[in-house]
């Protein structure tokens, strides 16, 4: 299956004569050194990853880590310095301006942190904007826009101006706008960071629901680890423009690639993220086990009642294959401590 997005050795360097950096010894310098020497700032450094169709791919990093630049490079809102981006196997950097516009109009849509709504247009016309510039007729685009508004729960607000809506509602408009053109890929640039925590959680639920309903490929930028863990099928951690680690949430928590990631995930309740795979031990010879096995990808917290009630080690299976057993001794450290776990 062709990946929805393939990013290969992507660089973005801001500053004077940025193209002279990549591929020279300068590229080996740290961010600060390079800035000192050339005045250039490396925003994205040699990043490669793939996003599978239908997946929620989260890019996480602190502010200044280059994540917003990275997502903009995908549709060339910011022109990459070097490397390649392919959407559905088609190289984006080789596209003509016209082809690129087609891509933005039909295949990729984006949701922005600060919404980017047109203040002079009604909600309905904001949602319909993408269709309007494609030349879709008025009646048709209003019909589709109304559908999208219904999808995000904003029916009844069609004729209001953006400024009359709350932040959360504005971002729903942004979401509806992105969905209106029925793209294959949705890019989210920290869409909920500007919202209150409660609203944020609502919106995350909303995104999960939409993802389930429409099944698009999502690339989601955030600096919020909880958000990343709760939404992401896979998470890429970005630091100073470099990709530190790419993996499923439990990989990050269970096996941080370095101290940076470890620091990041230190306070994550491990039992909520890790699965039994991370704590399964081989069964001792002749050990007496519980009869009903647990699947290997059960989250630890969910396994706790069973294991504790059983009083005996519980077998863990991957499909039909038995991979080992767990008992309370394995589970407790994940519930209590921060001991480094290594998958078997």
């Amino acid at each position: 299956m062709t990946p929805a997005i393939t990013v290969t050795n992507l660089w973005k360097v801001f500053g004077p004569r940025a193209d002279r950096v990549v591929g020279t010894p300068l590229a080996g310098l740290s961010r600060a050194e390079l800035r000192e020497r050339t005045g250039c700032l490396v925003a994205v450094r040699d990043v490669s990853f793939e996003v599978r169709p239908g997946e929620v791919f989260v890019v996480m990093g602190l502010s200044g880590s280059g994540k917003s630049t990275l997502v903009r490079c995908l549709t060339r809102l910011i022109e990459p310095t070097s490397g390649e981006v392919c959407l559905d196997g088609e190289p984006v950097r080789a596209m003509s301006a016209k082809r690129l516009r087609e891509l933005r109009r039909h295949r990729v849509a984006m949701v922005f942190q600060h919404f980017g709504l047109l203040p002079h247009r009604q909600v309905l016309d904001n949602v319909a904007y993408g269709l309007e510039i494609q030349g879709v007729g008025r009646a048709e685009r209003h019909r589709r826009a109304a559908q999208m508004l219904a999808l995000v729960g904003l029916t009844g607000h069609e004729h209001q101006l953006p400024e009359q809506l709350s932040g959360g509602m504005q971002q729903r408009v942004g979401l509806a706008r992105a969905l209106a053109t029925d793209p294959e890929v949705l890019l989210f640039d920290e869409p909920f960071s500007a919202l209150d925590p409660l609203i944020r959680r609502d919106m995350q639920t909303e995104v999960r629901r939409l993802h389930a309903e429409v099944g698009k490929t999502l690339v989601f930028i955030t600096h919020d680890l909880t958000e990343a863990l709760s939404l992401g099928d896979r998470i890429a951690v970005l630091r100073d423009g470099e990709l530190v680690q790419v993996g499923a949430p439990e990989d990050l928590v269970g096996a941080p690639a370095d101290g940076y990631v470890a620091d990041f995930v230190r306070d994550v309740p491990r039992a909520d993220v890790l699965t039994l795979r991370w704590v399964t031990r081989p069964a001792a010879d002749g050990e007496e086990c519980d009869d009903v096995p647990l699947p290997q990808d059960t989250v630890i917290r969910d396994a706790v009642p069973r294991v504790l009630r059983s009083g005996r080690p519980v077998p863990v299976v991957d499909g039909d294959r038995r991979v080992g057993v767990v008992d309370a001794e394995q589970l407790l450290p994940a519930l209590l401590g921060h001991r480094r776990q290594v998958p078997t």
């Binding site: 903009r72 549709t75 809102l77 690129l100 516009r101 087609e102 891509l103 933005r104 109009r105 039909h106 990729v108 849509a109 984006m110 922005f112 942190q113 600060h114 919404f115 980017g116 709504l117 047109l118 203040p119 002079h120 247009r121 904007y129 993408g130 309007e132 510039i133 494609q134 942004g174 706008r177 053109t181 890019l187």
Partner: peptide
């Protein structure tokens, strides 16, 4: 942001001017 949002939807330069910047 708004200009970027409109550009991300595939607006041409002329559309950006007449539908976003000027209004």
């Amino acid at each position: 942001v708004t200009v970027e949002a409109a550009a991300a939807q595939g607006s041409t330069r002329w559309q950006l001017l007449t539908k976003v910047r000027l209004p």
